[in-house]
Structure formats: structure tokens, C-alpha cells
Computed example of a mutant assay.
Amino acid sequence: MRIIRFVNDGFAQLAAVTDSGQIFALPQSDFLALVKEADAKAISPLALVFNTIDGSEAFKGQVEELELLVPIEAPEVWAAGVTYERSRDARNYEATEGRLDASTFYDKVYDAVRPEIFFKSTAARTVGPGGEVQLRSDSVWQVPEPELGLVLNAKGEIVGYTIGNDMSCRDIEGENPLYLPQAKVWKRSCSLGPAIRLAETVDNPYNLQITSRIYREGEKAVEGTANTNQLKRKLEELTEYLIRDNELFDGTVLLTGTCIVPPNEFTLAHGDRIEIEITGIGKLVNHVVGAGN
């Protein structure tokens, strides 16, 4: 069961999407209101959804025909780094100017007990399905980072899964690791969507296929695939470090790292189209605009 938000008669509408593709309106104002109501009734969010849509009439049409909104207006988006071997290798390449035999702090992070977790975005900097992600004006090497996103409640419990695009400036981060906030955080540098998969409906989050495609002038320029079974760290390990001595807000999203990195000679350009697809969640599509747009 997936939860979406879309524009319905000029207003944001929460809805449930069944595995058969049927769309049912939900009365709650947002995803967290659904989760809280389920908690108050001592039932699961899935049970609440089924109780709500029982006997209801489904919307006509397909999800792809709707004007989708970001599925949750996350007060904060955090991200984990170097959680896949491919990510470690890419960061080493950036930091050593291609000398892959040179050991760096990224090797230490990959093997360390403490994971790398950094602040990524706010609701105001985050776009949804179909939205435009923006390039930085002071970077010449920018890529998307397709990631599984964990939707968390204030206690750090995983209540849903979504897709995230952690836009990244490889040249800025490679120049100096202290520049990480600038390599990761700017306006429209993060996207989420198109839906939230209820956590209880995911049998195994460590067996989700991730596919990323980048199109330029209508032609596929880059394609990559990965699986969450390649994750070095457990999801609960990442969330435990995020909430440690930290105040977490309902609806916080934690991106879990990427295993798909475009070729080193590739950089995003104005007009590119990014597609990120994850098993059971859907396909997040965003267009790229240049700085100043």
C-alpha cells in the first residue's frame, strides 16, 4: 500500500494506492496525521487505510495522470554517506583526483562503527515529483544520488519508505571534506516521492531494486542499477545514530546513501531529466534547471 498526495480541485489530497493501482481518497490532512490516528486507535496504518477505504469508490484514472505533490513535507531531511562500497570508491576518486590506490578518510568512514550522517534539506528546499531540481552556479561536476528514504516519526521509528534524490557537487566535496554542506545543501537540491510505501507492507527492505536513468535531449545518457542488499549498514543502525542526543521531528526523512554513481566524466546539465525507480514505491521524475532559474 502506497500513500500519495496530489492536487484535487485546487487542494492537496491524501490518497491510498493499492497494489492493483486503485486510488482511494483519505480524509487525513497528511501522512503523519494518518500514522498518528492509527496509533491513537491502537491499529496499524495499513488497517486504518483498509477501514477507511472499505466500500469507497476509487478515483478514475492512473497515478501517472495525477498532479502529484511531495508525499510528505519533511521538516528535515538527513542523509547517510559512504554506506555502499560504490559510494566509498566514488568519494575516494573525488578526493584523490582519480588515484584510486590512495587511501582516504572515506575508507575509515566505510569501516568505522559510527556512520556518516549529515543534514541535507528542509521542506522549503525540497521538491516533489515532476518538480525542478537546480544546479549550483559554482560547481562544474554535479550528479543525482538515487537513495532509499526512511520516513520517521519523532521516536525514530520507520513508518514508511520513499525515494530520494540527494543532489551532489562532486568537485566541491572532493576539494575539501569540510565543504560537504555546500556540496549538498542549496535550494531545490533534494527531491522526494512519488509516494510513501507503508513500512509494514515491505517484507524485506534489503531487497529493493533501485534504477536510475538520466535523459538528455530525449536520449538516455546514463543508466544504473543497484539493490539495497548492497548496503553496508542496517537501517536501524542509521536511525539510531540520527536520534542519538538529537531532537527528531515527526516526518523527518533519512536518505540511506547511494550505490549508483554516473561515470566520472558525466555532469548534469540544464534540461536533463532524472528518473529514479525503487521496487514497490514508484518512479520519481525530476527535471534539471540551471542556476538562477
Results as ranks from 00 to 15, higher is better:
Ile3Leu: 09
Ile4Tyr: 04
Phe6Gln: 04
Asn8Lys: 15
Asn8Cys: 10
Phe24His: 08
Ala40Glu: 15
Pro45Arg: 05
Pro45Lys: 05
Asn51Arg: 14
Ile53Asn: 06
Ile53Phe: 07
Asp54Thr: 13
Gly55Gln: 09
Glu57Met: 12
Val63Met: 13
Leu68Lys: 07
Thr83Tyr: 02
Thr83Met: 09
Glu85Ala: 15
Arg99Trp: 10
Leu100Ala: 12
Phe105Cys: 10
Asp107Glu: 09
Asp111Ala: 13
Ala112His: 11
Ala112Ser: 14
Ile117Gln: 04
Phe118Arg: 09
Ser121Ala: 15
Ala123Phe: 09
Thr126Val: 06
Val127Arg: 07
Gly128Trp: 07
Gly130Ile: 02
Gln134Cys: 12
Asp138Asn: 13
Gln142Leu: 03
Pro144Cys: 06
Pro144Arg: 06
Glu145Trp: 05
Glu147Ser: 02
Leu148Asn: 00
Val151Trp: 03
Lys155Asp: 12
Asn165Pro: 01
Met167Glu: 01
Ser168Gln: 06
Glu173Gln: 14
Gly174Asp: 03
Arg188Pro: 03
Ile196Asp: 00
Val202Met: 14
Thr211Pro: 01
Tyr215Asn: 03
Lys220Tyr: 08
Gln230Phe: 12
Gln230His: 14
Lys232Thr: 08
Thr239Cys: 02
Thr239Leu: 01
Glu240Tyr: 11
Tyr241Leu: 07
Tyr241Arg: 11
Arg244His: 13
Asp245Glu: 13
Asn246Arg: 15
Asp250Cys: 04
Val253Trp: 03
Glu265Met: 09
Phe266Pro: 04
Leu268Cys: 03
Ile278Glu: 00
Ile278Arg: 06
Gly280Gln: 05
His287Ile: 12
His287Thr: 15
Val289Gly: 04
Gly290Ala: 14
Gly290Trp: 09
